Computed example of a mutant assay.
Amino acid sequence: MGGYVVVVEFRLKSGSRGDFRLLVDDNARTSTRVEAGCRRFDVIEPTGDSDAVLLYEIYDDRAAFDAHVASRHYARFDAASAGYVVGKSVTVGELVCEGAL
């Protein structure tokens, strides 16, 4: 089992979620497609909060996450999305139980 879990909450400029979603969705799909250590990358829109987007990511280990952050597609996403983001919080942890497979 195990896994390196990253949960990110983005606070966005009002009205920018659609544009931000285009960028983050591409980053999520590319990450799961080309990064061997990226096991899951979900993008979540919280109900009732149009200026927030959450990410739920699972990597094999910290090294796989570090490779993600060092990737070209992440750098493109980070640079292109910076103008939409007014705040970001990151929580990391260890996956200890998967509810269903």
Results as ranks from 00 to 15, higher is better:
L23M: 14
R39H: 11
V43T: 12
R21F: 15
T47S: 00
I44D: 03
D51N: 09
R29N: 15
R21K: 15
G37D: 03
V43R: 03
D42K: 00
V43M: 05
I44A: 03
T32Y: 03
S50D: 13
D26G: 07
A28S: 13
R40I: 05
D26K: 14
S50K: 06
D25Q: 15
D26P: 00
D25V: 15
R39E: 12
E45S: 11
V24M: 08
I44T: 04
D51I: 06
T32R: 12
L23G: 12
A52V: 02
V43Y: 05
D26F: 03
S31H: 11
D49R: 11
E35P: 06
N27K: 11
P46D: 11
L23A: 14
V34M: 00
T32G: 02
A52T: 08
L22G: 10
S31G: 13
V34P: 00
L22D: 07
A28R: 05
E45Y: 08
I44S: 04
R39P: 04
V34K: 01
S31C: 13
T47R: 01
T47G: 00
R21I: 14
G48R: 00
T32F: 07
D49K: 12
V24F: 06
A52K: 08
R33V: 02
V43C: 05
A28G: 10
G37I: 04
F41T: 02
R39K: 13
D49C: 07
G48D: 03
D51L: 03
N27E: 13
R21A: 15
T32K: 07
T47V: 09
R33P: 01
F41D: 04
G48S: 01
S31V: 09
R39C: 02
A28F: 11
V34D: 01
S31K: 09
A36E: 12
D51R: 05
A52P: 02
A52C: 04
A28C: 13
A28T: 11
A36W: 04
F41I: 05
P46Y: 10
R21H: 15
R33Y: 06
R29M: 14
D49G: 05
R21G: 10
S50W: 01
I44G: 00
S50C: 06
V53T: 06
A28K: 09
F41Y: 14
V43I: 13
D42N: 02
R33I: 03
D26A: 14
R39D: 08
